[in-house]
Write a protein that binds this DNA or RNA. Structure first.
Lengths: 341, 341
DNA sequence: AAAGTCTATGCAAAGGTTTGCATAATTACA
DNA sequence: TGTAATTATGCAAACCTTTGCATAGACTTT
């Protein structure tokens, strides 16, 4: 057994023809005799020849790979987006390289540099919660790499963007709660410095204002992270308040579930004494008791659209399309953790 | 602005020196004068030069990339494993390419072919539930690519393996249920053709046998998939049985949660009338009501160990190490969905 | 001053593939 | 039979980087 993989040269030598002929035969070039083609293909098959894309990539100055940068994948949200991205990309000639920034600006920069070195063709990114400066993305763009931002906005960065109307989702949610008679609606806000956190908070505030409900500063608490455990302390803080809220609008389902858990432990009835409303509509949210009212986001579609936009750039390298900004509408899903209207 | 990226040649031309000198200067080769080095580095910095790893990879006949093949990532299980893998790999010179087979043998084969073409250096894989033939992995091994199998075994494939003692986990779980007085324990088994499904079933059967409880064929139902919705029908089937089980041991937490949901809907008390026990210990499982008893698996550690084993192969290409088989012990976590012992 | 040593740099090949151009081989036609 | 046209194949460059070897120049030693 010869060590190293089979190359086009091996086939050429074996058949006493030139490597270029082998290359053309494998690519069905019209100038090659059928006989030759057949012989080449047969031998290629026999030797289990796999073209070395590294060489082709070098020649074409592109890696046929697109990078996907996300903060994490253990939650359902980004996993589902990635699945959407992948389902689009898998039908193209591109590969995907998924990179986790772990919500760290530092790591995100390292990733961008790595991707740049392997001559990535395009990037899909949802920035870390620490990221305030977007120059690393601008540097990518400057060297001709299209960047598509999804879910979390990068304010001030000119790029294609696929976002969700978080403001509207939050506004709807809070207005619904008001409609069910809740007077003291608290908000468990997301981690600071995130567009989504800000927009959902603003939707909350505006819904209160529109309905002439005064904002109680004590009723707004931000959680430090996205998982269940991050909701425990903030919820306790809220529910132990003298002016105990009669509803909690949480940044996401994990936090909402955590809030329900604490509320139940404190002996509060849901939704009679406290309504709870989440955001994301995670798969298990409808299976818990009481089933969670929440705001659904078209995650899978967002992934697909982001990928499609990137692909369209990659396939029309020359034409300078305008940057697209697509904003998906979320939908309120009312279940049993909030009162009926 | 020149189009295309900055190369070593550009720097060489600008400085009137040879490309080889630039290369050496950038790599701190001792034979290069400090002056020259400084000049080169300064210019490289100024032009934001990023080395083209494609060229280096071609030269070295390796891509510095390892492939990770998983069936899906929307659940917590594989996401957490991937996070573990990534956290190890990120500190090496390698990149990770995550590929989703969507539980399809077909797609898995396509992925393997793609990875082979980009000269992947190593592969971490958890096979799809459809995969019965492992020749595609053997082909990788034959061309010198180390393969590490994790979580789901590939029986008959000689490779490094990082698994969980599913049998033991299931055995423990069922024996615990028996200890709490359950006499009619049903099993919501996983999709067929999976090592994990088989081992958990066997653990269930052996626990019954050891305790002289006859096996009731009607009390074993397999679910078609891994998510909540896949558990609905099978659970109904079980709970509508004349000989209604007084406990359900489910293949995973999603199914268990689904089962609890149905049981509650049917007015059954948990755990008084039906105990429910899952597998995986997903993050939300302790936050639902009643909190779910389950079997914890060291997912993150499994990811890390798998990656470390692969790395050790890649760093010792010459030495032929024995294949390692590491089996993690799962742990029973008793919460409120099962009776006290 | 000649020979030897050392320092700093350059040359060229290698890695696998594609592709424009050149050329060899064959056929068609005058 | 000779020339043109056609068909099939080969040659060589290019993509970018690294690296063994060669070499030019400076300095040291006898």
């Amino acid at each position: 057994m010869k060590k190293g993989r089979v190359t086009i040269k091996d086939i050429a030598r074996e058949l006493n023809i030139a490597p270029s002929t082998v290359s053309r035969a494998l690519n069905d070039h019209p100038a090659i005799k059928k006989e030759t083609k057949d012989a080449v293909k047969a031998l290629a098959e026999e030797l289990d020849y796999q073209p070395n894309l590294l060489a082709l990539n070098l020649l074409q100055k592109k890696s046929n790979t697109i990078g996907v940068i996300v903060p994490e994948i253990t939650g359902h949200f980004f996993s589902a987006i990635i699945t959407g991205i992948q389902d689009v990309i898998v039908n193209s000639e591109f590969n995907i390289m998924i990179c986790l920034s772990n919500e760290s600006y530092e790591e995100e920069m390292t990733i961008v540099k790595k991707l740049s070195k392997i001559q990535i063709d395009g990037v899909l990114v949802s920035p870390s919660s620490e990221t305030k400066n977007f120059d690393h993305f601008r540097r990518l763009q400057k060297s001709g790499i299209p960047v598509v931002v999804f879910d979390r906005d990068c304010p001030g960065l000119e790029a294609d963007k696929v976002l969700v109307d978080d403001y509207h989702g939050a506004f709807q949610a809070v207005e619904y709660l008001i409609g069910t008679g809740c007077k003291n609606i608290a908000h468990l806000g997301g981690p600071l410095n995130l567009s989504t956190t800000e927009h959902r908070l603003q939707g909350y505030l505006d819904a209160l204002e529109k309905n002439n409900i005064p904002v109680n500063g004590k009723h707004i608490v931000h959680v430090p992270g996205f998982s269940h455990k991050d909701g425990i302390k903030p919820t306790k803080k809220l529910l132990e308040l003298k002016e105990r809220p009669d509803a909690i609008f949480a940044y996401n389902d994990n936090i909402a579930i955590s809030a329900m858990h604490i509320a139940k432990k404190m002996g509060l009835k849901i939704p009679e004494e406290v309504s709870v409303l989440g955001f994301d509509d995670e798969p298990h949210s409808s299976f818990i008791t009481p089933s969670l009212s929440t705001v659904w986001q078209p995650v899978y579609s967002m992934g697909m659209l982001s990928a499609r936009i990137l692909l369209s750039h990659l396939n029309n390298k020359n034409t300078t399309l305008e940057f697209r900004k697509e904003v998906f509408k979320p939908e309120l899903v009312i279940r049993a953790s909030s009162k009926a209207n």
